[in-house]
């Protein structure tokens, strides 16, 4: 299958030895991948993991980890259970007033215990035609619990190692470094039938980070170059087995002294089966690099095997 997908370029993206399989045309790659998934699901071949309940796999968030759109959750990215492996891929785009953020992610999760993810972000400055690229490698380990069953929330510990491809813009803005590592602790719980019989989900994440705008504007800066603890939260209601609506909040530091804002979104996810999901969100990302009121539509397509 990998042969059919025509992967012909493997790039090293950081000194720690992690690598990301890159296609010349990431969108085409993703489209082909999703096409393959669709073909397989139509033929009802159970190639991949289906061992979780529908809609409990969540999404791949903006940095590639399993979660909501903005926030990494304690749940892993795929539908793998205790005895399975799964592979997930996503392509997302946020169209803001002055910027565009495009993200492609690939993640594998093992035995509903460990998740490894890679992501590449391209941040376009629409007015100048310049773009900033960042690569992220993520690792998540489930410490305890099950998001759906039992009284305790599911608890996970994760990290995201980020490397900005070109330090020019972060440096010009005063960032102290072009790479950095975030560490997070997440708790996620689904409550069956909690509100008028509807299932609800909440997530709370604490993240230690130096990243400016996810790291797109580098790490650390003139006003602060130490790790700060940020709070991130999500809450959602499952309207049916296939529809989820929810809100997300992500607190952010302001190391560059540019008035970096916290992020907020309202999302709507459609999950027709265990192979596909489509998310549309309204995001309010506030001021980015001095340009105020960056609001816009976020669209994300997720595929699971």
């Amino acid at each position: 299958m990998l042969h059919r997908l025509n992967i012909h370029k493997i790039d090293y993206i950081d000194s720690n030895g992690g690598f990301l399989i890159m296609h010349k045309h990431p969108l085409l790659f993703t489209a082909k991948f999703l096409f393959c998934i669709a073909i397989f699901s139509n033929h009802s071949l159970s190639l991949g993991a289906e061992g979780k309940l529908l809609a409990t796999a969540g999404l791949s968030q903006v940095e590639g980890s399993g979660g909501g759109g903005l926030v990494p959750w304690a749940t892993l990215s795929g539908y793998d259970s205790h005895d399975e492996l799964s592979l997930s891929v996503s392509v997302s785009s946020a169209e803001l007033n002055d910027y565009r953020l495009a993200v492609q992610t690939l993640s594998a999760s093992f035995y509903d215990r460990v998740e490894v993810s890679v992501a590449q972000q391209r941040f376009d400055l629409k007015t100048s035609g310049v773009d900033i690229k960042q690569h992220i490698i993520g690792l998540k380990y489930k410490l305890y619990g099950d998001a759906v069953y039992g009284y305790s929330p599911q608890l996970s510990l994760g990290l995201q190692h980020k490397k900005n491809e070109d330090a020019t813009i972060p440096n010009a803005l005063g960032a102290a470094s072009s790479s950095g590592t975030d560490i997070y602790f997440a708790a996620t719980k689904v409550h069956l039938g909690a509100i008028s019989g509807y299932n609800t989900v909440w997530n709370l994440t604490a993240r230690a980070t130096k990243a400016n705008e996810l790291g797109i504007l580098g790490f650390g800066g003139p006003s602060n170059d130490r790790y700060e603890l940020m709070v991130e939260a999500s809450a959602g209601i499952l309207l049916s087995r296939n529809l989820v609506i929810g809100v997300e909040y992500r607190q952010k530091p302001d190391n560059l002294n540019l008035g970096e804002d916290d992020w907020f979104d309202v999302f709507f996810s459609y999950i027709p089966n265990k192979n596909l999901s489509l998310t549309v969100a309204w995001t309010e990302l506030g001021s980015i690099a001095g340009a105020a009121k960056q609001d816009g539509l976020y669209i994300s397509l997720n595929g699971h095997l």
Partner: peptide, 17 residues
């Protein structure tokens, strides 16, 4: 209905372990 399904599932979930 979907909400009644969830309420029954919630009761059943307690026997999972």
């Amino acid at each position: 209905s979907h909400p009644l399904q969830n309420r029954l599932l919630k009761e059943m979930a307690q026997t999972r372990d």
